[in-house]
């Protein structure tokens, strides 16, 4: 299962790689990282068929997570990848917007990795 993580914080890569060390090592999971919405769009043109799940931050400079989500839902309808949005503001408004744009779920920061792992298992 290949997962694309989109976040403007580069340290997210280190964190995810360490958090999912066992899963990556066993080949259960592959991780790819992009540091902006634009980069993610580029990455998807080349690799969209591999990606099963996208985990994207909402607040990013330039292209926001919502714009990326809209792009994904318009350009890659089949098979639709699972998209989980991540936000620091766990308010109702963001949730409504994310769901209406076609996100599968909205997670709030700080991420609970234990819960995330459970969620990933259920998605796949």
């Amino acid at each position: 299962m290949k997962i694309l993580v989109v976040d403007d914080e580069t340290d997210v890569q280190t964190l995810f790689e360490q958090r999912f060390r066992r899963e990556v090592r066993s080949g259960e999971m592959q991780l790819a990282f992009c540091y902006s919405g634009e980069q993610a769009v580029d990455y998807l043109t080349a690799h969209h068929s591999e990606i099963v799940l996208i985990l994207s931050d909402i607040n990013m400079p330039g292209m926001s997570g919502f714009e990326l989500l809209r792009h994904i839902r318009t350009n890659y309808p089949t098979p639709p990848p699972t998209v989980l949005m991540v936000t620091a503001y766990g308010d109702d408004q963001s949730r409504q917007q994310a769901i209406s744009l076609g996100a599968n779920d909205l997670l709030s920061k700080p991420l609970d990795f234990q819960a995330l792992k459970e969620k990933l298992k259920s998605v796949v």
Binding site: T14, Q18, R21, K109, P110, L111
Partner: peptide
Amino acid sequence: HEIQNPLNFVNNFAEVSVEL
């Protein structure tokens, strides 16, 4: 808000380091 993100990293890295 500004503190929250770096603090998340601190917490997360500390936790993951325990696992490591």
